Amino acid sequence: MDDLTKEQRHRAMSHIKATDTKIEVLLRKHLWKKGIRYRKNYALLPGKPDIVISKYRIAIFCDSEFFHGKDWGHLKEHLKSSINSVYWLKKIQRNIDRDTEITKQLHSLGWTVIRFWGKDIIQNPEECVQTIEDAILEQKIQQIELRQPSFPPPK
Rank of each mutant, 00 (worst) to 15 (best):
T19W: 06
S85R: 09
S82A: 13
S82V: 12
S85L: 13
P49C: 07
D50R: 08
L109S: 13
K33N: 07
L109M: 13
I23A: 07
K80A: 15
I53S: 08
S54A: 15
I36E: 03
V52E: 00
C62P: 05
D99Q: 02
L27F: 04
R57S: 15
W72C: 04
V86Y: 10
K91S: 05
K33R: 11
K104M: 10
C62S: 04
V86S: 11
S14R: 14
K76E: 12
I51Q: 08
L79S: 07
N95F: 06
N95A: 01
I83W: 12
I96H: 08
I36D: 10
N41M: 00
W72D: 12
H15Q: 15
Q93I: 05
E24W: 10
W32A: 02
E24Y: 07
E65P: 02
H68Y: 11
H78E: 13
I92G: 00
G69N: 03
L79W: 04
Y56L: 11
L79H: 07
R98D: 09
G47Q: 08
S108H: 14
K17P: 09
D50W: 02
L45Q: 07
D50H: 13
K55T: 10
I60L: 15
E65V: 01
I36M: 01
I92N: 02
K104H: 09
I58L: 13
Y38F: 08
K17R: 14
K34E: 07
R94D: 07
E77Y: 15
T103A: 15
Y87Q: 09
T103R: 12
K17M: 09
H74M: 15
V86C: 03
L45W: 08
Q93H: 03
Y56G: 07
R98M: 09
V52M: 04
G73L: 07
H30Q: 13
R39W: 05
D50C: 04
R57V: 03
N95I: 00
A43E: 11
S82W: 15
F67S: 06
K17G: 03
H78M: 14
E101P: 01
